[in-house]
Computed example of a mutant assay.
Amino acid sequence: MKRLTTLLAALTALLLCTGLHAQPLRIGVTPGAIADSIETAAQEARKRGLDVKVIEFTEWTGPNTALAAGDLDANYFQHLPFLENAVKDRAYKFVAVAPGLLPNQGLFSLKVRRFQDLKEGARVAVANDPANQGRGLLLLERAGLIQLREGSGARATLNDIVVNPRKLNFVEVEGPQLVRALEDVDLAQGVTSHYVAAGKADIADKHGLLYTGPEDVRYAIHFVARQDKASDPRLLQFIQIYQTSTAVRERIRASYAHNEKFYSLPWLARPL
Score class of each variant (00 low, 15 high):
Ala42Tyr: 06
Ala42Pro: 03
Ala42Lys: 10
Gln43Tyr: 14
Glu44Leu: 06
Glu44Thr: 07
Arg46Ser: 15
Gly49Trp: 01
Gly49Phe: 03
Val52Tyr: 01
Val52Glu: 01
Val52Asn: 11
Val54Tyr: 04
Val54Ala: 00
Glu56Leu: 13
Phe57Asn: 11
Phe57His: 14
Thr58Phe: 04
Thr58Met: 11
Thr58Gly: 01
Thr58Val: 05
Glu59Asp: 03
Glu59Phe: 07
Glu59Leu: 02
Glu59Lys: 07
Thr61Tyr: 07
Thr61Met: 08
Pro63Gly: 11
Asn64His: 14
Thr65His: 09
Ala66Pro: 10
Leu67Gln: 11
Leu67Ser: 04
Asp71Ala: 15
Asp71Ser: 13
Leu72Lys: 02
Ala74Asp: 02
Ala74His: 13
Ala74Met: 11
Asn75His: 10
Tyr76Gln: 07
Phe77Met: 09
Gln78Glu: 01
Leu80Ile: 15
Pro81Asn: 13
Phe82Leu: 11
Phe82Tyr: 14
Phe82Ser: 14
Phe82Met: 12
Glu84Val: 00
Asn85Ile: 12
Asn85Val: 11
Ala86Phe: 09
Ala86Arg: 14
Lys88Ala: 09
Lys88Phe: 12
Arg90Met: 01
Tyr92Leu: 13
Tyr92Trp: 12
Lys93Ala: 14
Lys93Arg: 15
Phe94Pro: 00
Val95Ile: 12
Val97Pro: 02
Val97Ser: 00
Ala98Met: 08
Gly100Ala: 02
Gly100Asp: 12
Leu101Lys: 06
Asn104Tyr: 01
Ser109Gly: 06
Ser109Asn: 03
Leu110Met: 03
Val112Ile: 06
Val112Lys: 00
Arg114Cys: 07
Asp117Met: 01
Leu118Ala: 08
Lys119His: 15
Glu120Pro: 10
Gly121Ile: 00
Ala125Tyr: 02
Ala125Arg: 08
Val126Ile: 12
Asp129Arg: 08
Asn132Cys: 06
Asn132Arg: 10
Asn132Ile: 08
Gln133Lys: 08
Gly134Thr: 11
Arg135Pro: 03
Gly136Arg: 09
Leu138Cys: 12
Leu140Gln: 05
Leu140Tyr: 00
Glu141Val: 12
Gly144Ser: 10
Gly144Leu: 13
Gln147Asp: 08
Gln147Leu: 05
Gln147Ile: 06
Gln147Pro: 00
Leu148Ile: 09
Arg149Gln: 15
Glu150Thr: 04
Ser152Cys: 06
Gly153Pro: 09
Ala154Cys: 04
Arg155Ser: 15
Arg155Ile: 12
Ala156Gln: 04
Thr157Gly: 11
Asn159Phe: 14
Asp160Trp: 05
Ile161Lys: 11
Ile161Val: 12
Val163Gly: 13
Asn164Ile: 10
Pro165Val: 09
Pro165Asp: 07
Pro165Thr: 08
Arg166Gln: 09
Asn169Ala: 01
Asn169Arg: 09
Val173Trp: 03
Val173Ile: 15
Val173Lys: 03
Val173Gln: 05
Glu174Ile: 06
Leu178Pro: 03
Leu178Ser: 05
Arg180Val: 06
Arg180Gly: 13
Val185Glu: 06
